[in-house]
Simulated scan of single mutants.
Amino acid sequence: MIDTKTEVAKRLSALIGLDVSWVSHAGDMLTMQFGPQRKYILQGKTREDGAWALHVQCDWKLEQDNRTVATRENLRGSDEKARDTTKCLHEVLLLKGPVMVERVSADTTGGVVLSFSQGFRLGVVPDGVKDDEDWRFFAPGLNAAHLVIEGGAVAPESFD
């Protein structure tokens, strides 16, 4: 049996010491990249992404010094609202100086907390809905298994 807490903490420990290098969204999914940007080819097209990516499709909250900066709800609604939220996140995490991952903690239900420099903290809380992806962590452009949390547990394809 997979120990979700241990597996998540082990995999996400790769982020410690890396800066947030990009923030975006796809619908109400938060997408974050970490580490230096690198170029690679995907389906015949040149792309540039960070060394690691985190895609969050469940509840999340970004705080700075215990004040809420944004939540999943801020990406829901109009496209304009989502764009404004992404612009705000990009501004506070990238343009106001580097924000580095300092600590990672996980729980038994696939929840994770990333503690950053400058007092930032991202909390991710899986929905726990069976067969529904909560979040994934991967190295863009590399042919390696993604860590997928689905229904509050590590999905089997995380080890392919």
Rank of each mutant, 00 (worst) to 15 (best):
T6N: 11
T6S: 12
E7T: 13
E7D: 05
V8H: 04
L12D: 08
G17M: 07
L18H: 12
V20T: 05
S21W: 00
W22E: 13
G27Y: 05
G27T: 07
D28P: 15
M29C: 12
Q33P: 03
Q33S: 11
F34N: 05
G35Q: 08
Q37L: 14
Y40V: 08
L42P: 03
Q43Y: 10
K45F: 09
T46Y: 08
R47C: 15
R47Q: 14
D49K: 15
A51E: 15
V56P: 06
C58A: 14
W60I: 10
K61C: 13
E63N: 00
Q64L: 06
R67G: 02
R67P: 01
A70M: 00
A70H: 02
T71L: 02
L75K: 07
L75D: 00
L75M: 07
D79L: 11
D79V: 08
E80K: 13
T85F: 02
C88L: 13
C88M: 13
L89N: 01
L95D: 08
L95W: 06
S105H: 04
S105D: 12
G110E: 12
V113C: 11
L114T: 10
S115D: 06
R121L: 13
G123S: 15
V124Y: 01
V124R: 03
D127R: 14
G128C: 08
V129D: 10
D134V: 08
D134P: 03
A139G: 08
N143V: 09
V148G: 03
E150V: 12
G151F: 04
A153T: 12
V154T: 07
P156N: 09
F159G: 05
D160T: 15
